[in-house]
């Protein structure tokens, strides 16, 4: 597009411009980020023993049983008109006995399960940095959350172990379309652990209901 000579000039500019932008942002934010990180260090010194476990953290390897019941079977179920009631019932049905007190407490029958998790929605920069600094912040256990899209709802199951996300899977798929479309997301990180390659490059599914469902489940893991 356009004249070749001009393009060439601009072209070199993009590589240089991106590098300069990263440097500028990094330098400008260095102080602030460093401050947040230093606070974190101070805070964690106290509880070092718990954090310093040298054990490598397992990452999003979906557990077999959850994966089995994940996407396929429930797929084509039409979204019922009285969706909220169904949703309530199914949450109750799968809520594991022990570690999910937040879930039974959270939604009232009339309020959809999508209530915003309060902890992660802090919007100022310092608050967000602070939130990171406070990791690990999740309570061990299994948590469920719902996400909605124009095409229906998805329930995610998130397993927290040692304060970290150990697995995220689709527990129920009530979408008009097959959840195979997004089935690649839950094992996204596990995929990376395949013997074949270190990592996989591919466009993300950043907008799907599964993501919101995971966020909601993590909100419960954070609560208390």
């Amino acid at each position: 597009m356009g004249k070749q000579g001009q393009d060439r000039k601009v072209a070199n500019g993009l590589v240089a411009l991106s590098s300069a932008a990263v440097l500028a942002v990094y330098s400008a934010g260095y102080t602030r980020t460093r401050a947040a990180a230093d606070r974190f260090t101070a805070q964690t010194e106290a509880r070092r023993p718990a954090v310093a476990e040298p054990q490598p953290v397992a990452v999003v390897a979906p557990p077999a049983p959850a994966a089995d019941r994940a996407p396929a079977p429930v797929n084509r179920r039409p979204v019922p008109s009285s969706r909220k009631r169904t949703r309530q019932r199914s949450i109750a049905a799968i809520t594991p006995p022990a570690p999910t007190p937040a879930l039974s407490a959270a939604p009232t029958p009339s309020a959809p399960a999508l209530a915003a998790p309060s902890a992660p929605s802090a919007s100022s920069a310092s608050a967000s940095a602070q939130a990171t600094a406070d990791k690990p912040q999740y309570h061990d256990g299994t948590y469920f959350g719902w996400g909605t899209s124009r095409h229906g709802d998805i329930q995610a199951q998130v397993v927290i172990e040692n304060g970290r996300i150990a697995a995220a899977t689709i527990a129920q798929c009530l979408t008009r379309y097959s959840c195979s479309v997004i089935a690649r997301l839950p094992p996204q990180v596990a995929e990376r652990q395949s013997p074949e390659v270190d990592y996989v490059s591919g466009a993300t599914q950043s907008t799907n209901a599964f993501y919101y469902a995971v966020v909601e489940a993590l909100g419960q893991a954070k609560a208390k």
Binding site: A36, A37, A129, T132
Partner: peptide, 15 residues
């Protein structure tokens, strides 16, 4: 600490 700071960048930029 470096890993914490790295994650903090995502928060800062997203915000």
């Amino acid at each position: 600490g470096a890993i914490d700071r790295a994650f903090a960048w995502f928060h800062t930029i997203e915000t």
